[in-house]
């Protein structure tokens, strides 16, 4: 069952295995008025995506078992999530960002990043 979301309060799924970063980014986005759900690994993320329709997914590349690339590629392969924009975070952008954009990510950020850059990107993606 897909829960409906309102445009006034866009929902974001945030996936990262670094607890601190997850916590902070969540607080920042909540502060900006988004509804934020978190997951600490790829498997949890895919489970959550199956049950809920998100307006935006932010995912870290390096995670155990199912990594960000796989989450991204699965999202882009499924009919109902294909259009959901995905922002990818990575610690190793130089070799990966190409792949990431090829699979269909909307944006790719290298850590460390500026909080405002992420906020701006989130705003842009949701405005589309």
């Amino acid at each position: 069952m897909l829960k409906p979301t309102t445009l006034a309060n866009p929902s974001i799924l945030l996936v990262d295995d670094d607890q601190i970063l997850l916590h902070v980014t969540k607080r920042i986005l909540q502060h900006d008025g988004y509804k934020v759900t978190t997951a600490t690994n790829g498997k949890e993320a895919l489970d959550k995506i199956r049950n809920t329709q998100f307006d935006l997914v932010i995912v870290d590349v390096m995670m155990p078992h199912i990594n960000g690339l796989e989450v991204l590629s699965q999202l882009k392969q499924q009919q109902n999530t294909r259009s959901t924009p995905v922002i990818v975070l990575t610690g190793v952008s130089h070799s990966i960002s190409e792949d990431v954009l090829k699979i269909g990510a909307s944006a790719c950020f290298k850590k460390p990043f500026e909080a405002d850059t992420l906020r701006e990107a989130v705003r842009q993606q949701l405005a589309k």
Partner: peptide, 11 residues
Amino acid sequence: VRSLLTINYPK
């Protein structure tokens, strides 16, 4: 194989 693919390393 999946867990080998998700090892932390840049290259």
